[in-house]
Design a protein around this nucleic acid. Structure first.
Length: 528
RNA sequence: GAUCCCGUAGCUCAGCUGGCAGAGCAUCUGACUUUUAAUCAGAGGGUCCCAGGUUCGAGCCCUGGCGGGAUCACCA
């Protein structure tokens, strides 16, 4: 069923039909691009490339470019428009007499619109007003745009008619990317961030591996999983919530250092810090401990900041954050004492509950020692940690996969890096005593039976691996999206994920999907 | 999940105390061979998110729903 077209869409469809009738293919096969707009703007040299009243340019700068028409100023027999390619925009000058007979009046003026993709061949010059432009001698239609773009206009840095609807931008990211060069920049920076991280790890000899996304037993973190099913084996499977237990099996297997940059999936709420599908980098290094890992993380993040921005001082929101090494290190209990005046080390559940209540927190009886400490930390300490800070030595109850602290009873060797009031990474000296690990899993099972749906599951195969002996190992998980937010000064995780999860589109937009999308479907999916 | 704010033309937004649905850009027609938010003259374009209610009359008031944003809470 064809949907109804808006006036502007109909105009564009008619133009496409006219093109075909005139023998112009609205969807060309290829175009030889020799230059990008930024290269032209950088390399143009008035002395060599600009014609003068005395004569032609000593050395013509000939270019072939391609991109979208983003604005048009038609003045009778000549016109200017801006062409946008990946690198930016450049103005193009078109005059009737430089194009094939009739092409300017029929095709250029009547059949092309803002948003169409065209190829231009010509020479570069500077206009009277001083803008470096391409004088077109050949113009080819490469792809006709049938939908109008929300066109932003700009003068003196002020943007008019800005496309601001967040939903529009996330749902139709392709349009957002066309209209907003800074969005393209954000994702280019994200890519550079990951490639910097990868080279950093590769240079140190760590092996990049791939472990299962579909897992019969999920583990490695406290979270609710997505559940799915394999038909042939008639088997329940979970989408991974972490890679941890598989990566540590590889340390057992004899790799000294392995890492994985992975999509993990957690069946939990959405917020500006949470997307159900997100990217994590996990790293495990044999014969090292958490103290060593702190050094590695700060070195890696510092080098990323330098690679992206050439500085360790980054502006994030209204704050300046310094990623310069070394970062502050602060034991969890000291951090809490600093902020609240309460020393929690060694306190039992009742004492902690009393302190939490005194501090004004809402608590209930099911909260254990670890949970209470975590609440107090999250409420009174974490939001105040703006500059990168390592919080170290967590209660054992919160960390079923971490090794007992070598000197502090009841704690584990674990750290989190907190930046701008949010957790950036989580790491520990890995627990490698299989019997201790079994006991910790059993504790988790008890929590699960009491209704904690984030409790970890017993993983017999993992225990078997540990029984073969895992060297002392340091492990790290770092939230790539969170790091990307910091590195690109983005206030929402949706601004660093190309296609963030959104609700399905409702029926008034169902024309997008043709027939299958009925009111009943939408109602069902909302209930789900 | 809770609270607050929002939903009007392709885009950005006005719309008074409830009284004929508006502007700029975009689109269409015409003029214009160095413009740049190009300019000038004219034209078309609306399920005012949806469903009820109050009213002589609803974009506006009331109820319910849907969608979005922000904040809070849980996980990274």
């Amino acid at each position: 069923m064809a949907r109804e077209y808006s006036e502007q869409e109909q105009v564009r469809r008619d133009a496409r039909a006219n093109m075909e009738e005139a023998g112009v293919n609205p969807y060309a096969y290829s175009w030889n691009v020799t230059h990008h707009s930024d290269e032209i703007l950088e390399s143009f040299d008035d002395a060599r490339h600009q014609a003068t009243e005395e004569g032609p340019a000593p050395e013509e700068l000939r270019v072939s470019i391609a991109g979208r028409i983003m604005s048009r100023r038609i003045m009778g027999k000549a016109a200017f428009f801006h062409l946008q390619d990946e690198s930016g925009r450049i103005q193009v000058y078109v005059s009737r007499d430089d194009l094939p007979e009739g092409f300017y009046n029929s095709v250029f003026k009547k059949m092309l619109d803002i948003g169409d993709v065209v190829g231009i061949e010509g020479f570069v010059f500077r206009t009277r007003v001083g803008e470096i432009s391409v004088h077109a001698q050949q113009l080819e239609v490469l792809s006709k745009a049938l939908r109008p773009f929300p066109i932003e206009k700009e003068q003196d840095g002020h943007v008019y008619n800005a496309m601001t609807d967040k939903e529009f931008r996330y749902r139709q990211r392709y349009v957002d990317l066309v209209v907003h060069p800074e969005v393209r920049d954000t994702f280019r920076q994200r890519a550079r961030m990951i490639s910097t991280m990868r080279s950093f790890l590769d240079e140190r000899g760590y092996v990049e591996v791939e472990t299962p996304v579909l897992q019969p037993i999920y583990g490695g973190a406290a979270a609710r999983p997505f559940t799915t099913h394999h038909n042939a084996l008639d088997m329940k499977l979970y989408m991974r919530i972490a890679d941890e237990l598989y990566l540590k099996r590889l340390i057992v297997g004899g790799f000294d250092g392995v890492y994985e940059i992975s999509k993990d999936f957690r069946n939990e709420g959405l917020s500006r810090f949470h997307n159900p599908e997100f990217t994590m980098m996990e790293l495990y290094v044999a014969y090292k401990d958490y103290d060593w890992m702190m050094g590695l993380v700060e070195e890696m993040v510092e080098s990323i900041a330098l690679a992206l921005h050439g500085t360790t001082e980054l502006i994030v929101g209204d704050k300046t954050i310094s990623f310069k090494r070394p970062w502050k290190r602060l034991p969890l209990f000291d951090a809490i004492e600093e902020r609240t005046g309460e020393q929690l080390f060694g306190k039992d559940q009742a004492e902690l509950a009393a302190i939490a209540k005194k501090l004004g927190l809402e608590i209930d009886d099911t909260m254990g020692v670890g949970k209470l400490i975590d609440e107090i930390f999250g409420e009174f300490v974490e939001p105040h940690l703006i500059q990168p800070t390592y919080i170290t030595d967590y209660p054992i109850e919160l960390s079923p996969l971490a090794k007992r602290h070598r000197s502090k009873n009841g704690l584990v060797e674990r750290f989190e890096a907190i930046v701008n009031g949010k957790e950036l990474c989580n790491a520990f000296s890995e627990l490698n005593d299989p019997d201790d690990q079994r006991a910790r899993f059993e504790d988790q099972e008890r929590l699960g039976n009491k209704g904690d749906d984030e409790a970890m599951q017993m993983d017999e195969d993992y225990l078997r691996a540990l029984e073969y002996g895992m060297p002392p190992t340091a492990g790290l998980g770092i939230g790539i999206d969170r790091l990307a937010m910091l590195m690109t000064n983005s206030e929402s995780i949706r601004d660093v994920i190309l296609f963030p999860l959104l609700r399905p589109e409702s029926e008034h937009e169902s024309d997008e999907h043709g027939e299958g999308s009925t009111t009943e479907d939408s109602d069902e999916s909302r209930k789900a």
